[in-house]
């Protein structure tokens, strides 16, 4: 069974008089445990597709299924619930809530889910070690480097054990070594937890890690090629 299934997605944006095509009849299946890169020039539709998969944005037409449930017609609350339980997000920047410490940011989703404090602390401590942030638990985002912040964001995305992690240009603001560390982290999580990763990027370094590359152009899927990761 596929983890993510999109059928004939269409989405257009209107900015004043200009109409921009975001998605143009896009259909894609992504199986559990896949490591997919969505590659496209800016405006190619990769963020739009990612948002549609994450339930952040609704397509004009077509269907989105996540873990066997159709989500494109869900209400706001149900979508929020779905995101909370099934999906982890990593964004390009401003990933963290500035008034919360690293640990609190990681525990935030769990706290909203209603997981008991002891459980939360155990899991956040474990995940902090896994992403290599021991000792930085009580720092606020402003006191961390970009790479560290992104790792906190990844930790938050996976701590609730979602089936899917969606990442939008996660390395855009990182130097090479930080980017490499982050990607290694992704790969190891993918292997260890069988988490599905969908990463939108135009960073060559990121693509090298993918086992499947989906190239998009003008809102359509141009090429869909499997590859051997580095």
């Amino acid at each position: 069974m596929s983890d993510i299934r999109c059928v004939n997605l269409c989405r257009t944006f209107h900015q004043g008089d200009i109409t921009v095509t975001g998605l143009d009849h896009v259909s894609i299946d992504i199986k559990k445990g896949e490591f997919v890169c969505l590659v496209a020039p800016s405006g190619g539709g990769k963020t739009t597709l990612l948002n549609a998969i994450g339930g952040l944005d609704k397509p004009d037409s077509g269907e989105v299924w996540i873990a066997g449930k159709r989500i494109d017609n869900m209400g706001k609350s149900a979508l929020a619930e779905m995101r909370l339980n099934n999906i982890g997000f990593v964004f390009q920047a401003y990933n963290l809530i500035p008034v919360l410490t690293a640990r609190e940011n990681i525990e935030f989703v769990m706290e909203v889910q209603g997981i008991p404090a002891a459980d939360r602390h155990r899991r956040s401590a474990a995940i902090l070690t896994e992403v290599g942030l021991e000792g930085l638990e009580d720092r606020r985002p402003a006191k961390m480097s970009g790479g560290q912040q992104q790792r906190v964001a990844v930790a938050r995305a996976i701590v609730a054990k979602p089936e899917i992690v969606l990442a939008d240009e996660p390395t855009a603001n990182l130097d090479s070594s930080s980017a490499e560390q982050l990607m290694d982290l992704f790969v190891s999580l993918n292997k260890n937890h069988n988490t599905t990763f969908v990463i939108a990027t135009h960073d060559q370094r990121v693509m090298e890690y993918a086992r499947r590359i989906v190239k998009m152009l003008d809102g359509r899927i141009d090429q869909d090629i499997p590859q051997d990761p580095r």
Partner: peptide, 10 residues
């Protein structure tokens, strides 16, 4: 961000 993470509007 919070909404994206699945926090309910309420």
């Amino acid at each position: 961000l919070m909404l994206a993470l699945g926090v309910k509007p309420m």
